[in-house]
């Protein structure tokens, strides 16, 4: 059901891998700062892709 994906918090810039359920629209919260401005990234964050 749930898949893992890359997320980025647009408040504190924290990037992380988290679970999400495709199709279901869910409330997202940054695990670091608690903001809801969390964006799911289509591809891994730049530095992770590089490293």
């Amino acid at each position: 059901m749930s898949e893992s994906a890359y997320f980025k918090c647009l408040r504190c810039a924290h990037e992380y891998v988290g679970e999400y359920t495709p199709k279901a629209v869910e409330e997202k919260t940054c695990p670091k700062c608690g903001s809801n401005s969390v964006r799911r990234l289509k591809s891994p964050p730049a530095e992770k892709a590089a490293g």
Binding site: L10, R11, E27, S35, N36, S37, R39
Partner: peptide, 18 residues
């Protein structure tokens, strides 16, 4: 957010909060 990024505007400037 996607659209802003494509246009070259930082998505961070649009914030969302519940």
């Amino acid at each position: 957010w996607d659209k802003l990024e494509k246009m070259g505007i930082r998505p961070e400037r649009l914030q969302l909060e519940w």
